[in-house]
């Protein structure tokens, strides 16, 4: 097998399994469009398998029988999983907690080593509030956000960088000190929060995977399991950042 074929085999594994009679690129575009619209996984699989069944019996390719994949996906007007705003904000909390904890940990690391105090500036508070607001906003409009990232990746990148630049500028400019807090407790507290956030995220990831897989309509129960690699990746993902931060803290403490 050439490297091309091996790579395509990995990339289109799902499409080939669900819809062997449909062109892989068509199936991939179809699934992506419905994912961007927030259609639940089983519903996507239902529509794709029906298209596959039609192509198998008619002997025509999907592009001929159904036209453009994105347009066909849109024309189906499938129901979307409209989670309430509260649910979305709740889902993003573990990650938000980890981000705040990591920032606090890195900020307090230097002063903690020397046993000093961490200065909380106006700029830091303003930037933190803005960042929290942006995360909440994006988590509520997550489909729109993903579509923008997919369709305009370069533009999104520039906006993200500019945003970060503004936040850093704010932090540097508004340097009036509100309070000074002993650094060691802050460091210890933020490391604990980071671990709490990781555990919370790990439990979230466990349930999310099962709920929204592309499950074929007549699939047997064994076929419902996500691939072992996928499940493993999801279980380990929340721990990457905490482990990195802990290692850095330890190294810094010893060598600093």
């Amino acid at each position: 097998m050439t490297t091309h074929e091996a790579r395509d085999r990995r990339r289109y594994a799902l499409e080939r399994e669900l819809a062997p009679h449909v062109e892989e690129t068509w199936a991939e575009a179809f699934i992506l469009e419905l994912r961007l619209r927030g259609v639940p996984g089983p519903r996507i699989a239902d529509a794709l398998v029906e298209a596959d069944s039609h192509c198998a019996e008619s002997g025509t390719p999907a592009s001929e029988a159904f036209g453009d994949a994105v347009e066909y996906a849109a024309s189906l007007e499938l129901p979307t999983a409209d989670e309430p705003v509260g649910q979305r904000l709740h889902d993003v909390l573990p990650m938000a907690l980890q981000v705040v904890a990591v920032l606090a940990a890195t900020w307090s690391m230097v002063d903690a080593r020397q046993g000093g105090a961490v200065e909380i500036t106006v700029g830091a508070v303003v930037a933190a509030v803005l960042l929290a607001g942006e995360c909440a906003f994006l988590s509520v409009l997550v489909e729109r956000f993903f579509r923008t990232v997919v369709e305009h990746p370069v533009r999104t990148w520039f906006v993200a960088m500019a945003n970060m630049g503004v936040l850093v500028l704010l932090m540097l400019a508004l340097d009036g000190v509100i309070a000074a807090v002993p650094a060691r407790p802050v460091l210890a507290g933020s490391l604990v929060l980071m671990l709490v956030g990781a555990v919370w995220q790990a439990r979230h990831n466990g349930t999310d995977v099962e709920e929204d897989l592309l499950v074929a309509p007549l699939a047997t129960p064994t076929a419902l399991q996500p691939s072992r690699a996928h499940a493993m990746a999801l279980r380990l993902q929340p721990w990457f950042l905490p482990v990195v931060v802990l290692v850095l803290t330890a190294v810094f403490w010893v060598l600093g």
């Binding site: 529509a47 192509c55 159904f66």
Partner: peptide, 29 residues
């Protein structure tokens, strides 16, 4: 297919039809 299946979907949404998946004979369901 691009005309027919959206129509069938609208019929289902309007309550004019119900759906059921059945195993095909040696082919896809």
């Amino acid at each position: 297919g691009g005309t027919l299946y959206p129509l069938l979907g609208r019929l289902e949404a309007a309550g004019h039809v119900t759906v059921e998946w059945r195993q095909g004979e040696g082919g896809p369901g």
